[in-house]
């Protein structure tokens, strides 16, 4: 393999992993607060379709991404209302949200299938872009990829070094104690849910406005679900989420590369690779049973009732 091919693979790896990274970071924050939202796939699809329509009709990418995030937030507020105010089961509500989002996005987007839109262009950072191997990967991407770096850095710092992150972890571990020492459990959980929605919407927008600038029904093709698995197997650690998302990206690209190189394996089998490899690697990372009990948010999926 020559160096150009590797450079290109690394570039495509990050690009392909970006939507997964964004949605998984959103879910990571959400789960840290003890809320399990299985609606990622539905929120992503709503973000994708709304963002696409907004950009197609107005020509503004900024408006497209803004509305993509907003639609993710609105979807997550439905989830928040049902699970936090009405104490419905989080798993069932999340599943319903995905089914709802899948159907509604297909309905709204029916008239827009196959229409082209001018997608996001890469921004080349002078000099750095020309670095061998990693130049294109880290410095020749579009704005959203750079933004995903920023979001990753922010989430990592937030969880590990900020006071608010400490509060988030406390609420996820033991909401009753958190309430007893005076932390606003509901507000923290709502904010976490909203952040998760915004990130899912943004990731959806990335799919339909940058990654493949068009709208196809069900175009997130299971990334929301992979993101959920990613967060668990990453042991709720931001750096492992990044690793898993990029690994998924790498494997997605490799199967195209293998086909290009004429490897005699059925393309259908190769298409499984990203899902399989991501899960296998993260399972191996997280096989320490004792450690897992320490990292998982203890109250994950359990409703919290403030008794008064």
């Amino acid at each position: 393999m020559d160096i150009d091919l590797i450079t290109n693979i690394l570039y495509a790896m990050v690009r392909t992993g970006t939507p997964l990274l964004i949605v998984a970071l959103g879910e990571l924050i959400c789960e840290k607060s003890g809320v399990l939202n299985l609606g990622q796939e539905g929120m992503m699809l709503m973000g994708a379709v709304i963002g696409f329509i907004a950009t197609l009709t107005t020509g503004s990418l900024v408006l497209g991404f803004a509305l993509a995030m907003l639609s993710g937030v609105l979807m997550s507020l439905i989830f928040g209302l049902i699970t936090q105010e009405l104490f419905a089961n989080q798993v069932a509500t999340g599943l319903a949200l995905t089914i709802f989002g899948t159907g509604l996005s297909a309905f709204i987007g029916a008239g827009f299938v196959g229409k082209p839109v001018q997608g996001l262009d890469p921004i080349f950072i002078p000099v750095l872009t020309d670095l061998p191997l990693i130049g294109r990967m880290l410095f020749g991407q579009d704005l959203l990829v750079y933004l995903s770096f920023v979001i990753f850095g922010g989430v990592y710092w937030f969880i590990n070094h900020s006071r608010a992150g400490l509060m988030l972890k406390a609420v996820g571990e033991n909401p009753d104690s958190a309430h007893a020492i005076g932390l606003p459990v509901f507000r923290i959980r709502y904010l976490a849910i909203i952040f998760g929605g915004a990130m899912a919407g943004l990731a959806g927008g990335y799919l339909s406005l940058a990654y493949t600038p068009l709208w196809v029904e069900n175009m997130s093709s299971g990334r929301g679900w992979i993101a959920l698995a990613l967060v668990v197997f990453a042991s709720w650690k931001a750096e492992r989420v990044l690793l898993g998302a990029w690994l998924f990206g790498l494997m997605s690209i490799l199967h195209l590369v293998f086909q290009g190189l004429g490897v005699a394996i059925s393309p259908n089998l190769l298409a499984i690779l990203p899902y399989l490899a991501t899960i296998v690697v993260l399972v191996m990372l997280s096989r320490d049973k004792l450690n897992n009990r320490l990292v998982a948010p203890v109250s994950l999926g359990r409703p919290f009732y403030a008794k008064s």
């Binding site: 006071r163 400490l166 509060m167 972890k169 406390a170 571990e173 033991n174 009753d176 104690s177 958190a178 007893a180 020492i181 005076g182 932390l183 320490l294 990292v295 203890v298």
Partner: peptide
């Protein structure tokens, strides 16, 4: 201040982090 019967502490955090949580910004 109150000391609870079933402690309101967070197992996976350190002593300092636990106390910082309750104190708020003044920590």
């Amino acid at each position: 201040g109150m000391v609870f019967q079933h402690f309101s502490l967070f197992d996976t955090l350190t002593v300092t982090e636990n106390i910082a949580l309750a104190l708020g910004k003044e920590a």
